[in-house]
């Protein structure tokens, strides 16, 4: 299945060069969770971020669904 992941602020540097804007399309196995998505992204491990979909902050075990739009928010220092 495929999900749409928008990378915000300091995470935008991890958007691949061929991506459309700041949104990355990620292919995952059916039943994949938020944790699986984070593992699939080329973002250093340990870089904690908030995963949000439809205005809800998702738990790491939340199961994703086909075509879901997600947004990743990093902590900001400044």
């Amino acid at each position: 299945m495929r999900v749409h992941v928008k990378l915000n602020a300091t995470l935008r540097r991890y958007v691949p060069a061929n991506a459309d804007g700041d949104t990355v399309l990620v292919d995952l196995e059916p039943g994949a969770t938020v944790d699986d998505l984070l593992a699939a992204l080329a973002i250093p491990t340990g870089y904690t971020k908030m995963v949000v979909s439809a205005g809800e902050h998702l738990a790491s075990a939340t199961v994703l669904h086909e075509g879901q739009h997600l947004s990743l928010f990093p902590p900001l220092a400044g």
């Binding site: 340990g46 870089y47 904690t48 908030m50 902590p75 900001l76 220092a77």
Partner: peptide
């Protein structure tokens, strides 16, 4: 929200 800080240098 953020249990751990980002690795040093990762979040300018």
């Amino acid at each position: 929200l953020f249990p751990e800080p980002p690795p040093p240098g990762a979040a300018p």
